[in-house]
Design a protein around this nucleic acid. Structure first.
Ligand SMILES: [Mn+2]
Ligand SMILES: [Mn+2]
Ligand SMILES: [Mn+2]
Ligand SMILES: [Mn+2]
Lengths: 220, 220
DNA sequence: ATTTAATTTTAGACAAATCTAAAATTTAAA
DNA sequence: TTTAAATTTTAGATTTGTCTAAAATTAAAT
């Protein structure tokens, strides 16, 4: 019922990876966790042993229900703490990730519930990602990536899916943040880069990689 | 510059023990940390290696200046988080210790400073213990233990020095808490137990051990 | 001053998490 | 369909923190 910080980080990373592809590979997880494939294999055996993971050697792996449940609780804590750091301690949304990476491992269940209440039961974290409730449920907001947004359709930035410090720095520089209203003016098929127009600013260009990780919500 | 949670717990415990006696013994530290003397010796070698400790085998040990500095920062974090849990998350002062024992190891220096500001720079934690400032200084409030309080002198409870859950439970049962006004009616030399009078309540008896750990402030 | 007891340290082991280098397996190319 | 490349796993080592049992040292009793 109590797992090490490292195990929790593995579960969380697997959860995120398998949301995008059905099954996860050793290399992808090692890359995501900045560790070595051999170390991942070691951990996979332990997680399987603890019945959190469906895994057979050489065949990929994915979380079972129990593993998902645990992962969602870590994600819940991560996002609640991020919200606390931004809304209560006045941190910028681009500087809270590392701290939340530690805070998410604080174990008290009661603390999480009190924190949630103290924050007024927020539904999304400072990056626009939904916060699971205490049962692990969350309303997945129908948002799409900037890469999928049709041309000349105004939309509002509602989330950033891979928030590395480098990525957030870049976005800040381009004046793109949560709530920013923008539209896609051109797509360049050569490298899938996009020209973006934000009201009152000259157009800026962003790469395909960035576009895939900026989530927007349709103006309705 | 960054120490493991276990090292930090050792430094903190040594700090507390050496405040009461000048020099600390292996057995006392093992007892305080619920570990084995052999494990303590192992850790002492590492702390000496890292120049946080003055230690020679068989001769006791104590923190040097650097060790004290580190210990005081952990104590600062512990007490700020306790204050947060009680004042913001509505926990009782007798249920926050375990959580703070984890939170005190969160590393971000900036987080601590922001938390301090958010809380309004409190001077004491929910148990009446002073909170060191960011330089490790704190105004030691001139409080004395209940065992030292003269007979029939009304005083106010201002702190609990050893706050185990068991101890706090006992105090709650005897209706003794922070801010309680009381006086000592009798001392029994046989076992150094005390008869205590709290306004509106019948007298209660407390042991010498409890008396030594309840701190009071003179009514002036 | 010996003997006994308590304290402290060492020796050796173990679990957890990680790594490198080499072997096994799968996938992609020729 | 062989061969080559990429992926994944094993074998064996390392670090950190802990433990038990035995030895060394210090303190307390006869
Ligand atoms: Mn983490
Ligand atoms: Mn986030
Ligand atoms: Mn602690
Ligand atoms: Mn306290």
């Amino acid at each position: 019922m109590k797992y090490s910080a490292s195990k929790e980080d593995h579960l969380k990373a697997i959860f995120h990876l398998q949301s995008e592809q059905g099954v996860v590979t050793t290399n992808a997880l090692a890359e995501a966790l900045q560790t070595r494939p051999a170390s991942v294999t070691d951990m996979l055996k332990k997680l399987k042993e603890q019945k959190l993971l469906l895994y057979e050697r050489y065949k990929g792996f994915r979380l079972n229900n129990e593993g998902k449940k645990v992962a969602l609780q870590i994600i819940r804590k991560h996002r609640l703490w991020e919200y606390f750091l931004v809304k209560k301690l006045q941190f910028g949304w681009d500087e809270v990730h590392e701290m939340a990476e530690e805070l998410e491992h604080i174990s008290s269940k009661k603390l999480v519930e009190r924190l949630d209440a103290f924050l007024g039961f927020p539904e999304t974290d400072p990056h626009g990602d939904p916060i699971p409730d205490s049962q692990g449920r969350f309303t997945s907001p129908r948002q799409l990536s900037l890469a999928q947004l049709p041309l000349n359709k105004v939309a509002e930035v509602s989330g950033i899916s891979r928030q590395t410090t480098e990525m957030l720095e870049l976005l800040q520089h381009k004046k793109i943040g949560l709530g920013t209203k923008l539209e896609v003016r051109r797509k360049f098929p050569f490298d899938n880069s996009l020209e973006i127009k934000i009201r009152n600013y000259p157009p800026v260009t962003i790469s395909s990689l960035v576009a895939k990780n900026v989530l927007v919500k349709d103006e309705e």
